[in-house]
Amino acid sequence: MHTLRIQIRDNDGAVLRALGLIERRCYRLRSCVIGETNDGGRTMEVSVSSSRSGDLLKRQLERLHDVMKVELQPVAIVDGQHSAIRPLGRRN
């Protein structure tokens, strides 16, 4: 499981573009919370499962013009299992 916090511009299709990329690159979306930042942008907190690297997904998301910042949560293992989504906390 990878958990990412994505800051995006509030442009046409920006959320779809990021979510579409995630699924298209074979990361299975497990949860997604969309919020607003103080400056009118959007934040997305997503958890995805995949055998592929979270860092690669981060770099693929960063290519999108609408994406301003991506933070990848370190993977936590709890009782031998990947942790469920942990709240990332608001940073704005």
Binding site: D12, G13, L16, R17, G20, L21, R24, L64, H65, D66
Partner: peptide
């Protein structure tokens, strides 16, 4: 067309 082309454009506008 904006939605159809999302996976195959570098960026797009309406």
């Amino acid at each position: 067309i904006f939605g159809i082309t999302l996976p195959i454009v570098k960026h797009s506008y309406i």
